[in-house]
């Protein structure tokens, strides 16, 4: 089960600030909902975990991340990650190429192209949702990434397309007992931040599956009405 996702997120920060953050794998990982670095093997190899939870079902993948390439000239990064879930019933692999495109002095774009493939139970049962899930995860990633950037002169903006953050807010609004609003938006933002501005501390959590589902449903409706209008 493979999906390719290409996304571009406008950021209200200078390309250099965004690039600085992008190179800090620790910080980048922490922007990934549910992701955690557990061990630095060497400069370019890390071990970590990613958790996903959909309702009662939860999966924790542990695996390795390899930084294939960091190119300051093009402000681009190439990561490879692969792992198996801790019950040994699923596998996942991701190939991510991201770069920062300047867009004036105080704005830039985070452009990501990734291929995600999963095996085992995750593919059998999660396959149908996969592109939707990946889409949501990236939007959350972008939202978190934006949060960690030093605010640009004008009023702070979080990642657009606006779907990203509202999704989360709405999800939280509909499911308050399950997860507080920031659970996803500010997932993985420990207080110890080196490269970026400190933000409200929040416990590291799994990707909230219900928020994901809600986001997917929203996008699906959007898509539906767009189709109608077209």
């Amino acid at each position: 089960m493979k999906v390719q996702i290409e996304k571009s997120f406008p950021l209200a920060a200078s390309a250099d600030a965004a690039w600085a953050l992008l190179q800090d794998l620790e910080a980048v990982t922490q922007c990934m909902p549910g992701a955690r670095i557990t061990e630095h093997v060497d400069a370019s190899h890390f071990k970590g975990t990613v958790g996903v939870r959909v309702g009662p079902a939860s999966m924790a993948f542990r695996g390795e991340v390899e930084v294939r390439e960091i190119d300051a000239a093009t402000r681009s990064l190439h990561l490879i990650g692969r792992g198996t879930d801790n019950t040994g019933t699923s596998g996942a692999a991701m190939d991510l190429r991201a770069h920062i495109e300047p867009d004036g002095p105080a704005a830039c774009k985070l452009v990501g192209l990734s291929e995600v493939s999963v095996s085992g139970k995750a593919a059998t049962f999660g396959g149908r949702l996969m592109s939707g899930v990946a889409d949501q995860v990236l939007q959350q990633f972008a939202a978190n990434f934006a949060k960690r950037l030093p605010p640009a002169p004008q009023e702070p903006v979080v990642a657009t397309p606006v779907v990203a953050t509202p999704v989360v807010a709405d999800a939280a609004a509909t499911e308050p007992p399950l997860t507080p609003p920031i659970a996803v938006a500010a997932a993985a933002t420990p207080a110890t931040i080196t490269t970026a501005m400190p933000v409200a501390e929040a416990p590291v959590r799994d990707i909230n599956g219900l928020a994901l589902l809600w986001g997917m449903v929203r996008d699906w409706f959007h898509h539906l009405f767009e189709a109608k209008r077209a």
């Binding site: 493979k2 095996s119 593919a123």
Partner: peptide
């Protein structure tokens, strides 16, 4: 099956 040989309907 999918292209990686994952079962897509075994329950």
């Amino acid at each position: 099956f999918d292209e990686n040989g994952n079962h897509l309907g075994n329950s």
